[in-house]
Design a protein around this nucleic acid. Structure first.
Length: 195
DNA sequence: AATTGCTGCAACCGCGTGTAA
DNA sequence: GTTACACGCGGTTGCAGCAAT
């Protein structure tokens, strides 16, 4: 019952997995700049990438797209995420649509690593406010106001950082990860390559 | 200075849905 | 009406970097 065409259709072509290389990124950016996005598995083949279409799509949407904003979720964005999560639950893509430049993957990661932690902490301080940490919207709704209070994000005064490691100090884009290069770099390289 | 544990993030996987043949 | 393909979503995992000991 594997409906995944990426596995079956490609005939013994080795498929690369794991972190993307700079060359692969450039190929993908260049190809999409010239041909547009979509039909990802044929795109992957046509571009000469040994990646699944799925992988290409993910890389493009979550990292390479020129309008992707990276790092530093603002307190406003955080509040919005919490409100929307309370409304819709784990509908990350839906939530992401209300946060321009943010990807569902980023929001999902952010929620799981930061906000959920604080909900747990808040609950351990005030047990019984909500029965358990639950991804479902219903539960979140119960605890959201309490959590927002605890996290002190409703007032975006600088003091909030003191009790909120969910809002880490900003890292310059080009130093947040040595494995990566700034999108400006990539796009300028693409321009050089392109025409 | 070395080791261990923790955190955050990129990427993969499986599944559901939409659509064209 | 059925089947196969393509896409998108949400959950999970692996690993690099950082902090604590």
């Amino acid at each position: 019952m594997d409906k995944n065409p990426f596995n079956s259709s490609s005939q013994d072509v080795e498929v690369r997995k794991g972190p993307w290389t700079m060359e692969e990124d450039l190929i993908l950016i260049n190809y999409i700049a010239n041909h547009g996005e979509g039909v990802w598995n044929s795109l992957a083949k046509a571009a000469g990438l040994k990646r699944t279409g799925k992988s290409c799509r993910l890389r493009w949407l979550n990292y390479l797209r020129p309008d992707v904003r990276r790092g530093n979720i603002t307190p406003e964005e955080q509040l919005l995420i919490m409100e929307l999560h309370a409304k819709w639950g784990n509908r990350w893509s839906k939530i992401a649509k209300h946060l321009p430049g943010r990807t569902d993957n980023e929001i999902k990661n952010y929620w799981r690593t930061r906000i959920q932690k604080h909900i747990k902490q808040a609950e351990s301080i005030t047990p019984g406010q909500s029965s358990e940490v639950n991804d479902q919207a219903s539960t979140s709704q119960v605890s959201i106001s309490n959590t927002v209070d605890t996290m002190d994000i409703s007032h975006s005064a600088p003091t909030h950082q003191a009790n909120m490691d969910a809002y880490p100090p900003p890292l310059p884009a080009d130093q947040s990860n040595d494995n990566y290069w700034s999108m400006e770099d990539l796009w300028s390289m693409q321009l050089l390559n392109g025409e």
